[in-house]
Design a protein around this nucleic acid. Structure first.
Lengths: 223, 223, 223, 223
DNA sequence: CATGAATGAGTTTTCATTCAT
DNA sequence: TATGAATGAAAACTCATTCAT
């Protein structure tokens, strides 16, 4: 799990978590994700998180010593999975296939974990008070590395010249938009990514646009 | 100004606003935009808005009867300008030129009014409690209309087949991303849209990607 | 007033205090002295202070931003008057008269402001978290200066050799004891300093003991 | 042990304490003394006491049923030893030798158990909620008895006329001051009673002052 | 128009204590 | 004996809002 710098773990004493602890922590983090992503840090209340996690406020505070601690843990909990897809971009693969796969994964994340996406967006929009160090560290390194991969494809003439970092931004922007702005999208189209048809349609649109945009052709969709 | 349905105007008595009233309302709205966009609705405080507007809390509440009223007014104030670019999409123009112009306008908005973008994003991410009616009404109609324009271009063989609504989403997503996630972008690249070189670069990347993506070629950049 | 380092004043905005402000601050400080001296910092509650000051908790917090701020202000408020007597020790005076006067003043303080004495004792016993800098600075200088005065008297053969600082400590100890331990004294004697006879008796005992102790004779009591 | 009236003993079931029980009770009382003397009753927390005693909060509460019970036990634990010196004042001895010995014992207590002194001071300053009955009972009787001793010495012309009770107060005051106000003394002199030189100096100053004060001469220091 | 004073409802947090094992 | 889990009551704030001037 990606560390958010706080002073060590926030769980009672001993190293290993008991069954109950693990269960409760998990319940809390789920509830917290729901609450924080909907209301933001300030709008969320510990009481509601506790209620949603099915325990008393005091008991919740037995597991996480403060609202901020819950928030940090929630972010950390999410960050790993949220940034995972990019790591799979394989230098040895075909650009079209690799990019298409990456885009698909990102859209799937938006469909499956829209709350995580919104939590992340919220955090960044507030100035990334908690995760700025991670953005400037781990994420920056990861993006550099993957940009290199893309640049190599470009240098090998496999795709059109484009700033790789900007390309990554555009993939993030387009895919996450469907999670972060899902209310707007629903208001305008009546649909969201939970609708398989709309999901397909969206994936096609984004993939086609971006692959065409960088001079590639979408690979046959065989998964 | 786009109405947010609130109970009547929120200005004292008589119809016309005095010079000083108009000035103060404006100061408040500016301060409110800054505060709300940075902290979200719940995180913002009336006191800070008042301080930033250079007046007492009480006086601020003389102009706007409640925090929510300030928030609504700020949203309304912004919405008009925020949605304006799309209106300029001209059915009679060349697709490439029109889309490029639209994209440029959107990026310019992101560069000039990043706070407005974040306020809007925030509002939508919280479930659009205030502007949902507008999204479902005015905006939906506007998007329908402009989708028709794009569809006509497609039908006329001027550009590749693509769902026009999805295309609009992608333009929104990519352009707004540079405002909403500017902290992340700064953490990863060291730059933001206030840097003219980065602005140029970004505009080129987005425009090229999207135009290529829909089978068009970027028009000569002659402005 | 002796500053306790906190970040500036704790009163709203402008420099001068309004009539109401002055009155309320004063009511609060009185109530706070009573509460803090009886219960200590942790045992005191803002609510009780507010109640005793005749106002709502919120209103109290409008005047002092936190419990700690009230505590600091109370200490500062008291310190000046608490340390004043020592300053009157006059190098030009007769040792017996001067010391007797000092002792009398200290006992009077104990009789008049026993709460201040206990607050001070409490603060010091907790490790002087707030006033340590003052003890090490202003007070230390004052004690040095007055020790010099006493040493001069000793050097001039006017009184017996004694460590002047220790003498000061003993005067403090004996006089303040009657405030700080008044409950015990009452339990043992049935009296306290508010009883004029007991006051007289106490003053005589302390003065005689200390003056005799340093080889002086009590001056005729003519005030 | 001096009883504080609480509801029966606070130890589990059977009469005799097991080895481990005795040890734990002792650990708790030590930790409690440290905590209560530093923070006062309200400022102390059961958790910190437990931590300092090296056991869990729950386990501590197995030995003492409540925070107040720990506090009472700590006080009782201390009181005996704290009041012991006065009992040694021997009617048959020489006044100078007896008083000097008493003073020395009191200073030694201040040097050895400053925490006990502060705990006691704290309790009395809060109004002696727990020990008032003892003050009014056992202690009052003891003081009466010893006052009689002193009065007999006075009546026998062995020392100057002085109110014996007041003399006792002054001995208490001066000697305990070095424990209770040790922080202040350290701030003013850089020293405390743990420094043997300062201890000597202090003992001499107090003894000389008080003995001279009552018309006696300090006995040769032969221990 | 403007502000200082006041408040009540809510929110986080602390902590002694109880419960179950 | 011992401890981890859980809780309820209290306490310190925070803040939008109202009142009086």
């Amino acid at each position: 799990m990606m560390s958010l710098g706080g002073q060590a773990s926030d769980t009672p004493k001993n190293g290993g978590l008991s069954r109950i602890q693990e269960r409760n922590r998990s319940l809390i983090l789920d509830a917290a994700l729901s609450e924080f992503s909907r209301k933001g840090f300030s709008g969320a209340t510990v009481e509601r998180i506790a209620a949603e996690a099915g325990m008393s406020k005091s008991n919740l505070l037995y597991y996480f010593s403060s609202k901020e601690a819950i928030y940090k843990a929630t972010l950390a909990h999410i960050l790993e999975v949220w940034l995972a897809p990019l790591k799979t971009l394989d230098p040895g693969g075909e650009p079209a296939r690799e990019l298409a796969a990456y885009i698909r994964q990102k859209i799937e994340m938006s469909a499956t974990f829209p709350e995580a996406s919104r939590l992340f967006a919220n955090e960044v929009m507030q100035g990334a008070p908690q995760i700025l160090p991670i953005l400037e560290g781990d994420l920056r390194r990861l993006v550099s590395e993957k940009s290199r991969v893309i640049q190599d494809w470009i240098d090998a003439g496999k795709m059109r010249q484009v700033d790789p970092v900007q390309l990554i931004f555009m993939i993030w922007a387009t895919t996450q938009h469907y999670a972060d702005f899902s209310i707007q999208i629903k208001a305008l189209t009546g649909k969201d990514l939970s609708d398989p048809v709309f999901f397909e349609e969206t994936e096609n649109s984004i993939t086609t646009l971006i692959l065409n945009g960088v001079g590639l052709t979408a690979p046959g969709n065989d998964d």
